[in-house]
């Protein structure tokens, strides 16, 4: 069940989206997220859907693979939808006991769920088509000005890329420890909240111990390969903009323009 999480995973393929400069993808993702909250009306959303559909198609990542990632946040979506449906005041459609479902609420629920889905799909297409290393390279370069105010951009970027690399490993490990403790009679499912939290200890302690051990090993392995911070480092894949990147920037800005325009129409 835990291995179904696709957020943060990289899907290797050879597509134009994979080849785009990570800075472009970071920028586009940011713009897309903003646009989701700016989009209004059927046309506004229609454009967002079309834009996303086009990118997914171009990326060659199977749609099925992306949908699988959504399953992991299903509960979050249901809660969001329920809150919106039940707590928005307005014209009552159905009511039972103390609950009222309003027309506005229903509309909001649909809108919010849709936004959430697009948000997740939009950001996961970035992580799916960009290796963590490229992503951090992009961040590092985009945020380089912050170095001037003494923010260790390289170190932060390196930490992020390593975290991303270890997510799937730790997820698998969680699964394994959970099963091992279940074999010793552990119960992760029943009891009240306090008891459940307490029951997590046999899972969390080994997980932390393992994470620290891995961190230790990895630090040593990095040192052994002459890692000594960002100074004097060269890049195997330095970031340089190609023509497609400028084109992509124009496209993204045009998309934002259209979304904004549709707001006023």
């Amino acid at each position: 069940m835990l291995r179904d999480i696709t957020i943060g995973q990289y899907y290797p393929a050879d597509s134009i989206i994979h080849r785009l400069d990570p800075r472009v993808k970071l920028f586009a993702t940011l713009i897309y997220v903003i646009s989701l909250f700016l989009a209004k009306g059927v046309f506004g959303f229609g454009i967002s859907v079309l834009f996303l559909a086009m990118i997914i198609w171009l990326s060659k990542v199977p749609f099925k693979f992306m949908v699988k990632g959504l399953k992991a946040i299903m509960i979050l979506m249901i809660i969001t939808a329920a809150f919106n449906a039940l707590l928005t005041p307005g014209e009552v459609l159905v009511s039972f006991w103390i609950f009222k479902i309003t027309k506005e609420g229903l509309k909001n629920a649909v809108m919010m769920t849709a936004r959430l889905i697009f948000l997740i799909l939009g950001t996961s297409i970035m992580t799916l088509t960009t290796t963590p290393n490229q992503l951090t390279d992009g961040l590092e370069k985009a945020l380089r000005p912050l170095n001037k105010i003494k923010i260790p951009v390289h170190a932060i970027a390196m930490m992020m890329s390593i975290a991303l690399r270890f997510i799937p490993i730790l997820v698998e490990e969680t699964d394994k420890i959970m099963k091992a403790q279940m074999a010793r009679g552990a119960d992760f499912e029943s009891g009240n909240l306090l008891k459940r939290v307490k029951n997590m200890i046999p899972l969390l302690v080994p997980l932390f111990v393992s994470a620290f051990r891995r961190a230790d090993d990895l630090a040593m392995a990095m040192e052994a390969r002459c890692y000594h911070g960002g100074e004097g480092r060269t890049k195997m894949k330095p970031l340089t903009y190609a023509r497609r990147d400028y084109l992509a920037y124009i496209l993204v800005i045009a998309y934002l323009g259209v979304t904004l325009l549709l707001r006023w129409v």
Partner: peptide
Amino acid sequence: NQIIASVVEEDVGFGPENIGVPT
């Protein structure tokens, strides 16, 4: 615990990057 990158070739490139080998 000794593979740093998420793609094989990028991991192999990690060492040379650290010692400043040209791209």
